[in-house]
C-alpha cells in the first residue's frame, strides 16, 4: 500500500513540475497569437521546433555541434589534466603548495573572460586560442578540487600505508587517489560545466563554426528562431553532460561507501 502511495505522489510531483513549462508555453503562444511583439522579437514555439528539425536535417546543426564538442573536449582535457596533476602535486608536497598555491588563488581572481583578448593577442584568433581559453576555464575547478581531495585523505590512511611500506606508485593508486576520488569527480563535473560555458563564450566572441557561432550569425541576420534553437541546444548538451557525470559520480560514491563498510 505504501508503495502505491509513493507512486501516486511521484505522479503528482511530475504533474506539478509540468505546470510552469506549460504556462510558459501558453504565455509564449498567446503572446504570439495576440501579436504583442513583432516577428523579430518572438516567434511561435512550433517555429523554433521546426527550425531545429530543419537545421538538423541540413546537417548544419550537427556540424556546429561537432565542432563545439571537439573544442570543448580538447580544452577540457588540456585544462583538467593540468589542473589534476598540479592539484595532486600540491596536495602531496607542502613546499609546492606554499609556493604555487597563493599564485593560483591570485590568478583565479581574474575574471577569465578578461583573458580572452590577451589570449587572442598571444595565440591569434584561430582554434588554438579557443582551446587555451576553454582549458583555463577547466583548469581552476580541477586544481582546487583535486588539491582538496588529496590533502583531505585522512592522516591515518597515510600512516597505515607507511606502516605497510607502500611504494610511491602503490601509495598513490591505492590510498591517495581512491581517497580523493569523490572530490576529483566533483572537480571534473564543475570543470566540464565551465568548459561548456567557455566554449559558447569563445564562439560568441569570434569564430567560424560551432553552436555559439550559429547563434551570433543568426542574431546578425535577425533570425530569432535560430538563436532560440541554439539556446535550446546548448542547454540540452549542458544538461546531458551534467547527467552523465552525475551517474559516474553516483557509481564512484557507491563504491566508496561499500569500501568504507568493509574497512570498519
Amino acid at each position: 500500500m505504501s508503495k502505491s502511495l509513493l507512486k501516486r505522489f511521484e505522479w503528482k510531483d511530475k504533474l506539478l513540475a509540468l505546470i510552469v513549462p506549460l504556462l510558459v508555453l501558453v504565455a509564449w503562444q498567446s503572446a504570439v497569437s495576440l501579436q504583442l511583439f513583432s516577428e523579430m522579437i518572438l516567434v511561435p514555439p512550433l517555429t523554433v521546433m521546426n527550425t531545429l528539425v530543419d537545421l538538423a536535417r541540413t546537417g548544419d546543426l550537427t556540424n556546429n555541434i561537432i565542432s563545439s564538442l571537439k573544442r570543448v573536449l580538447s580544452g577540457f582535457l588540456l585544462g583538467a589534466s593540468t589542473g589534476f596533476f598540479l592539484g595532486l602535486l600540491m596536495g602531496l608536497s607542502s613546499l609546492l603548495d606554499r609556493f604555487v598555491g597563493p599564485l593560483i588563488k591570485a590568478c583565479k581572481q581574474v575574471p577569465q573572460f578578461a583573458l580572452m583578448p590577451l589570449i587572442i593577442l598571444w595565440f591569434g584568433i584561430d582554434e588554438v586560442s579557443k582551446v587555451v581559453f576553454i582549458s583555463i576555464g577547466a583548469f581552476f575547478p580541477m586544481v582546487f578540487n583535486t588539491y582538496q581531495g588529496v590533502s583531505g585523505v585522512p592522516k591515518k590512511y597515510r600512516e597505515l600505508a607507511r606502516v605497510f611500506n607502500y611504494k610511491s606508485f602503490r601509495y598513490l593508486t591505492k590510498v591517495i587517489l581512491p581517497g580523493a576520488l569523490p572530490s576529483i569527480i566533483t572537480g571534473v563535473r564543475h570543470s566540464l560545466g565551465l568548459s561548456w560555458m567557455f566554449v559558447v563564450g569563445a564562439e560568441l566572441f569570434g569564430s567560424e563554426s560551432g553552436v555559439g557561432y550559429m547563434m551570433v550569425w543568426a542574431r546578425q541576420l535577425f533570425q530569432i528562431d535560430i538563436v532560440m534553437a541554439g539556446l535550446f541546444v546548448i542547454g540540452i548538451i549542458g544538461f546531458t553532460m551534467n547527467i552523465i557525470l552525475q551517474i559516474i559520480e553516483k557509481r564512484v560514491l557507491r563504491w566508496r561507501v561499500s569500501f568504507d563498510g568493509r574497512m570498519a
Partner: peptide, 23 residues
C-alpha cells in the same frame, strides 16, 4: 512546481543568453 523548471534553465550557460537578450 518551480524547482524542476529552475534546474532545467540553469543548464543553459549564462553566456548563451547574450544573443537572445541582445535581440
Amino acid at each position: 512546481i518551480f524547482a524542476p523548471f529552475f534546474h532545467a534553465l540553469r543548464q543553459v550557460p549564462m553566456i548563451g543568453w547574450i544573443p537572445l537578450i541582445v535581440m
